Amino acid sequence: MLETILSTESIRKSFGAHCVLDGVSLSVRKGEIVGLLGPNGSGKSTLLNILSGFTPSDGGAVNVDGHDVTGLPPHAIARLGLVRTFQLPSMPHRMTVREVLQAGCRREAGLGGALRRWRYDAEVARLLDQFLLTRVQDQPASALSGGQKKLLSIATVLRSRPKLLCLDEPTAGVHPNLRSRMVELLKEVNAQGVTILVVEHDMEFIRELCGRCVVLDRGALIADCAPRELVENPRVVEAYLGKAVEKGKLTA
C-alpha cells in the first residue's frame, strides 16, 4: 500500500456566519495525481489555502509527509515539501523568464559552488525547454501570455524539488492547444516522483490527468472516486446542478 503524503482531519473554516468547510477529511498517497473538484463556492480554494498555510483553519489538522503542519506559515510548509501555484500568477516586471527561474538558486563560492552553479544553470535550461519557455527566456516574465505564466509558475516551484505539488486551476485562461501539453508535462513531473493535487473546473482535463478525484460541495466532501465514476454519482450530479451530462462527462 502506498504511503500517505497528505492528510486532513475534520478541517473547519467559517467567514463570519458563512461555513465554508465543515469537517473535511481526505488523504493523498505518494505518487498519486488527485483532482480536487466542486462547484463555485464549494470550498476548494479555501481548503488549498489552509493546506499551504495561507489561511488558518478554525479547527482540524493537516499532516504533510508525517509532519503536523496545522497553523504553520507557508514557508515552513514549503520546506517540508508542499508547494503550490496560484490561479492568477503574479510575475515581476523587471525580471526575465530565465531570471525568475534562476532566482531560487543559492550562489555559493569556491570550486564546489562553481560546480553547483553549473548544475543550477543546467537545471534552468532543462526546465525552460521542458516547459516550452526557451524562446521567451529573455522576455520580461510579466509580458508572457496567461498560459505561459502558468507554465513558468509551475517550473519555478519545481526548483524547490517538492514532494507534493498543489495546483490552483492550472488551465484557467490557457489556450486549448497548451492545455493538452500541460497534461503531458504534469504526467512527466509526476513520473519524476512528485505527487500532485490539482484544483480544477475542466472535467476533461481532470479525466485525462488524474487517477482519483475528491469532490466538495458546500464545504463537505461528497465523493472520492475515479474520474469516470463522477457522472454516476447522484450527489456529484446534483452539486453541479445546471450542468449537463454529455458523452460520459460533466460539462460546464
Results as ranks from 00 to 15, higher is better:
Ile5Arg: 06
Leu6Ile: 00
Lys13Trp: 02
Lys13Val: 08
Phe15Glu: 03
Cys19Gln: 15
Val20Glu: 05
Leu21Met: 04
Leu21Ser: 06
Gly23Tyr: 08
Gly23Val: 07
Val24Pro: 00
Ser25Gln: 09
Leu26Thr: 00
Val28Thr: 01
Ile33Thr: 08
Ile33Asn: 00
Val34Ser: 00
Val34Trp: 00
Leu37Asn: 02
Leu37Phe: 10
Gly38Val: 06
Gly38Glu: 05
Pro39Cys: 09
Asn40Asp: 12
Lys44Ala: 04
Lys44Leu: 05
Ser45Ile: 07
Ser45Cys: 09
Ser45His: 11
Thr46Gly: 08
Leu48Gln: 10
Ile50Cys: 04
Pro56Glu: 14
Gly66Pro: 10
Gly66Ile: 11
His67Leu: 08
Thr70Pro: 01
Thr70His: 05
Ala76Asp: 15
Arg79Phe: 04
Leu82His: 07
Thr85Val: 11
Thr85Gly: 06
Phe86Arg: 08
Gln87Arg: 01
Gln87Ser: 07
Pro89Ala: 10
Ser90Gly: 09
Met91Leu: 07
His93Lys: 15
His93Asn: 11
Arg94Gly: 03
Gln102Asp: 10
Ala103Val: 07
Ala103Pro: 06
Gly104Cys: 04
Cys105Leu: 12
Cys105His: 13
Cys105Phe: 12
Arg106Cys: 04
Arg106Asp: 10
Arg107Thr: 02
Gly113Leu: 03
Leu115Phe: 14
Leu115Ile: 11
Leu115Asn: 03
Trp118Val: 12
Ala122Thr: 13
Glu123Ala: 14
Glu123Lys: 12
Arg126Val: 02
Arg126Ala: 13
Leu128Phe: 06
Gln130Leu: 15
Arg135Ile: 09
Gln137Met: 15
Leu144His: 08
Ser145Thr: 15
Gly146Trp: 10
Lys149Ala: 12
Lys150Asp: 01
Leu151Lys: 07
Ile154Tyr: 03
Val157Gly: 06
Leu158Val: 08
Leu158His: 05
Arg159Thr: 14
Ser160Pro: 06
Ser160Tyr: 11
Ser160Asn: 07
Arg161Thr: 09
Pro162Asn: 09
Leu164Tyr: 09
Glu169His: 08
Ala172Ile: 02
His175Ala: 15
Pro176Val: 13
Arg181Gln: 14
Arg181Leu: 11
Met182Ile: 10
Leu185Trp: 01
Leu186Asn: 00
Ala191Ser: 14
Gln192Trp: 02
Val194Pro: 00
Ile196Pro: 00
Ile196Thr: 01
Leu197Gln: 04
Val199Gly: 03
Glu200Phe: 04
Glu200Val: 07
His201Cys: 11
His201Phe: 12
Met203Gly: 04
Ile206Ala: 11
Glu208Pro: 01
Leu209Glu: 00
Cys210Asp: 02
Cys210Tyr: 05
Gly211Tyr: 05
Gly211Lys: 08
Gly211Ser: 09
Val214Asp: 02
Val214Phe: 09
Val214Ser: 05
Val215Ala: 10
Val215Pro: 03
Val215Phe: 10
Leu216Phe: 07
Gly219Met: 02
Ala220Leu: 14
Ala223Leu: 02
Ala223Asp: 08
Ala223Gly: 09
Pro227Lys: 01
Arg228Ile: 08
Arg228Pro: 01
Arg228Leu: 10
Arg228Phe: 07
Leu230Ala: 03
Val231Met: 07
Asn233Asp: 12
Pro234Thr: 08
Glu238Lys: 15
Ala239Ile: 04
Ala239Tyr: 06
Leu241Thr: 13
Leu241Glu: 05
Ala244Gly: 10
Val245Met: 07
Val245Ile: 15
Glu246Tyr: 13
Glu246Arg: 15
Gly248Ala: 10
Lys249Ala: 12
Leu250Ile: 14
Leu250Arg: 05
